[in-house]
């Protein structure tokens, strides 16, 4: 194996995450994960657990962990979903049996989450898939090359397509896109409220985020009514 192949693709990967304003950290229901084996591709994923479901955080975590850890990058959601759904049932089943009637009923309704997964291949291509309203931004030289699947903040609704943790629910439409990356490119994966805000204000601002400025900027945007009160999650991948 030649020397360049064993170098990681990325210069830096950061995950920024905050719960809704007025909520505790343990009430945060998004999830993010990434993995970059030395000689393999880089996988990254975000998921946004639906507020109205119980154990949505567990479901969001099953999705992102499944995508990055199984080494296949979840190219075929339909094939991999049953295993992730079984993982959710295992994670919540024992806990749910000890809960009162309403939690039991809620588990029977299942958990729901929007999902976006990105695969960056070493040879210079990338591909992504999504269900729902998480967003991907591809930046180069401080310009936006791709904003996907939405390009307009007005496109977000309160009822996006979501992946269900219950096998009896049909798989909603999965959208896919692909492209080529270059050294120095930046990819952003964002959950819906943050993505809508970035679309309005320009995703380039995310290049300068530190953990501190992220928290301050989000708090200010929320206070000014520019950002919907929601969990916010951003994965920022800066390529070498």
């Amino acid at each position: 194996m030649s020397e360049p192949d064993s170098r990681p693709l990325f210069r830096d990967v950061q995950v920024f995450a905050l719960p809704k304003v007025g909520h505790r950290e343990e009430e945060y229901e998004d999830a993010a994960a990434w993995m970059a084996p030395l000689r393999g591709p880089l996988w990254a994923a975000v998921a946004d657990g639906a507020t109205e479901a119980a154990f949505a955080r567990d479901w969001a975590q099953c999705l992102v962990a499944g995508f990055v850890e199984e080494g296949r990058g979840g190219d075929s959601l339909g094939e991999q979903l049953p295993a992730w759904q079984a993982g959710w049932r295992e994670a919540v089943g024992a806990r749910a049996q000890r809960l009162p009637w309403f939690a039991e009923a809620k588990v029977a309704q299942g958990a729901y989450a929007a999902f976006l997964g990105l695969t960056l291949e070493k040879e210079g291509t990338w591909h992504a898939l999504a269900v729902g309203d998480c967003c991907l931004f591809h930046l180069r030289d401080e310009a936006v090359l791709t904003s996907w699947p939405f390009t307009d903040a007005a496109a977000f609704t309160h009822r996006p397509a979501l992946l269900s943790s219950l096998p009896e629910h049909a798989l909603p439409p999965v959208v896919r896109t692909a492209g080529r990356w270059r050294a120095g490119d930046v990819f952003l994966l964002a959950t819906d409220a943050l993505a809508a805000w970035l679309l309005r204000t320009g995703p380039i601002s995310a290049l300068a985020f530190t953990a501190e400025t992220f928290a301050t900027d989000i708090a200010t945007a929320h206070r000014n009514g520019d950002l919907r009160n929601d969990d916010v999650t951003l994965v920022r991948i800066e390529l070498r």
Binding site: E52, A54, R95, L99, F102, A105, K106, Q109
Partner: peptide
Amino acid sequence: LQNLVLRCAKEDGV
């Protein structure tokens, strides 16, 4: 009422 409760129910309570 059951529906209202379930809309507010999370794993850690209502």
